[in-house]
Write a protein that binds this DNA or RNA. Structure first.
Lengths: 257, 257
DNA sequence: TAGTGGTCTAGACCACAAT
DNA sequence: TTGTGGTCTAGACCACTAC
């Protein structure tokens, strides 16, 4: 069980543990051998073993519970973020609620709306002047009581002031999605654009989304358009542990060039 | 400059350095103070300082170069993976090439095709029997000489055997995209479905994509359909450092419910 | 050669969980 | 109380980079 350079010893220990996991010798939920035990087995100090375990944690393979032990991570059921939910018709609920219902998960939302001056980036996305009046609504979406998605939504008050949807979550259509809300005031969304990136969470995001180390988050920039006019834009942060993003692109028939 | 519990000392050092970065006091490309210097400033041992720097590395904020120093990460130019590129018509080049050209980046591809028996997961996606004959093509895509995207593509030989596209990268349309290639044998793609997730890379992926610690990868499962028949499926791994995924969803006009 | 990070230890003390 | 992980050190030696 001896381990020597050239490769770092903690890397070699991490390799062995990783292999035990990928080979199925250690299954999801199984505890890893204790650090003390491993340090004896490999003839290495405990800090070195700890460093090896940390490698697997940052890879998202292992979860450590202080005082209990380290465990092979189990995958939680996935919610799908499907762009097909952005539609008009039978389904006027917001995409998140619809997806959660489809996955048989109980969903709740908390929100808070303020008036604000459009910051530079938002102004650019809404094609308005920086500093123009906007509403800013922060949402936290919960699935089965766990926070799974954060978003900050911006709408130009020049469009919505004095209407029933001035405060997105109030009024007769307060619980509906963006498309239905704007339909209510005669503005008809024609398309939705999303840009998806992924990165490691900030400490704040990690806490709010309760993601463990080694789990990246999606960052989605979404804009609803009515023809040439952007009417809403949002920054969405979601745990990649809980979400997959799905979309279907039609390929119209026609003459190849 | 002293630092004490209750919070772990290395966490506090990481917090201070992170703040210097987010506040702009340290700008992209700037070197961090050396670990020796920091250990004197904070009255902490060098291993503790090193642990603090590691935190920022796994967050994707800092890049360490052995022997040179630690630096605030700079963002590289982004390639967009836009689903609008899956189309028929003027543009018959593969989506990757088209995107790279749009971003003014020189792209090259290496590939290798083998015959194989369909594994379980692929058979399910192509709606064929497990073990049925398929072609498996591995691609590595390069942007300006750097590998940025890996993919493994599967096509049922029951559909393509004996045709000009049996080996995807050979024949008269060998350099075209999936849609154009299947058009060539009279099979017309109607839609493309993608499922996007993100996770930390495996050590192999990290090496092949040359991603630094703290950078997650996209994992995309893509299937081209001709009506009710899946004709191609691929697993795509791409660096989130280099890519954002973009798509636009049409919201047809019509009667709200 | 000097400076930087990479790694490792032996032992220690602390915090948390289960019994 | 026992076992588990969390953290820290003082010093050491190694490997890489730049000059």
């Amino acid at each position: 069980m001896d381990i020597t350079p050239p490769q770092a010893r903690y890397e070699q220990v991490a390799d062995r543990l990783r292999q035990m996991i990928t080979d199925g010798e250690l299954r999801p939920g199984d505890p890893l051998p204790s650090e003390t035990y491993l340090s004896e087995q490999f003839n290495l100090s405990r800090p070195t073993i700890n460093k090896a375990v940390r490698v697997l944690v940052t890879e998202g393979l292992v979860l450590v519970e202080h005082g209990r032990g380290s465990f092979v991570k189990t995958r939680r059921p996935l919610l799908r973020l499907s762009t097909e939910r952005y539609r008009r018709g039978v389904d006027i609920t917001p995409p998140f609620m619809a997806e959660a219902a489809a996955a048989n998960v109980e969903s709740t939302v908390s929100h808070d709306t303020e008036k604000a001056d459009a910051p530079e980036s938002v102004a650019h996305r809404l094609r308005i002047e920086p500093g123009a009046p906007v509403s800013r609504t922060r949402y936290t979406f919960y699935a089965d009581g766990e926070p799974v998605q954060l978003s900050v939504q911006w709408e130009s008050l020049t469009l919505t002031r004095g209407t029933a949807i001035e405060v997105p979550e109030q009024g007769p259509v307060g619980r509906d999605g963006v498309v239905a809300r704007f339909d209510h005031i005669g503005i008809h969304v024609t398309h939705v654009h999303e840009s998806v990136s992924a990165r490691m969470p900030t400490p704040v995001e990690a806490r709010e989304l309760q993601v463990t180390a080694g789990t990246p988050v999606f960052h989605i920039t979404r804009t609803h358009w009515a023809g040439e006019t952007p009417v809403e834009t949002a920054d969405i942060t979601a745990s990649t542990d809980r979400y997959a993003i799905e979309h279907t692109q039609q390929v119209p028939l026609g003459e190849p060039a």
